[in-house]
Simulated assay, not measured.
Amino acid sequence: MFGTSIHWTTFFYLLIDTAIVLYLLYVSFKKTHSSLKHFIYLGFSIIAYNITGGFLPIVNFPGPLIIQYIITYSVAIFLCLYIIYYLYKEYDIVVLKYNLTLKKVILITSFGFILLFLFPYFISGSLNLSRYLFTIPISIFAFVFLIIFYRNISKPSNSNTFILRRNKLSTLSLASIALLPVFTIIGDYQWITFTLMNTAFYAITIMEIDRYLFFIKNNTRMFEIFALKKKQRDDFVKQKIIYEDLTRREIEITLSILSELNYKNIAKELFIAESTVSKHASNIFKKTGVKNRSEFLKRFLNKQK
């Protein structure tokens, strides 16, 4: 399209992604406090991916061709890592297995790109050879990571449909990332690779919409906690929770506490460590001006019944 290498499907995704980001910016500007910034960053990342990967390489562009490939690969790698970071934050994951921290995932991918793509290219001058040397090991690593992640969040006997939906969407997002290097090896089929990455983004978008609807559904339970008039805020802010002061994860844990679940069951339901639940609960109690769980339930639970 437009005399460039961009495929019509990529341009279509670019329009949709731009519309999503513009709407998010509109919503975030309307609110004094917003927890959407990480999702907005993700939106800008997918736009950058569509633009650089769609329009580059340009044959008549000044400078070595490899510079354009470095740009496109770097943006794609950054997007993949940011999605992984997003899901790490989503699930409060510090370590999965084999001490596979987020920092190590970033280092493995970054050094892999330098040692297995850039270095072989400057020696051989072959783009195809460099692509194979990089994408084959990184594809294996991606699928291993996907399996470890899935096993970590996939547990039976969870009746919370909201959590189960989020698990499936997270797995779909990571599966799309894992398949990206596979199709890169097969060939330069832009409509396939860009569909995969935009699928990962749309899966997370659906997760955010689902979370919003979940909060709306439980709004009546949280009303006494979230509803705070300006006079109340000025008089004694610690008597209530200001909605924007709570992270989205803290809201989920608040709802679980209001359901009178203990920390062990909350941890099991949300697939996180019990110590992580305790840490979030401490932040919630601090923001509500209570000392502990008992005081929190005494203050807010009776108002929900």
Results as ranks from 00 to 15, higher is better:
I106Q: 06
D235M: 06
H38A: 03
R131K: 14
T135Q: 07
I114L: 15
L102W: 14
Y243Q: 13
A178Q: 08
I192S: 11
I192W: 05
T195S: 15
D17E: 11
N198L: 05
V27Y: 06
K230S: 02
Y98E: 02
N218M: 08
H7K: 12
S5Y: 12
A200S: 14
T205I: 14
L81N: 09
A200W: 04
L115K: 08
S126Q: 09
G54P: 10
F214I: 00
L213D: 13
K103T: 03
L228S: 10
T193I: 09
L65N: 08
K89I: 09
H7S: 15
F223T: 03
L96P: 02
S130Y: 12
S74R: 05
V182E: 09
Q232D: 11
T276K: 13
L246M: 13
T135Y: 11
N50H: 09
Q232K: 00
I66K: 07
G289I: 07
P120V: 06
F11T: 01
H38P: 01
Q68P: 02
K104A: 00
K291I: 03
L258H: 06
N302R: 09
F300M: 08
L174M: 11
S259E: 13
L25T: 04
D17L: 10
Y86V: 02
Y189S: 12
K268G: 00
Y49P: 00
I108F: 07
L102C: 04
L118E: 01
I136H: 01
Y132D: 00
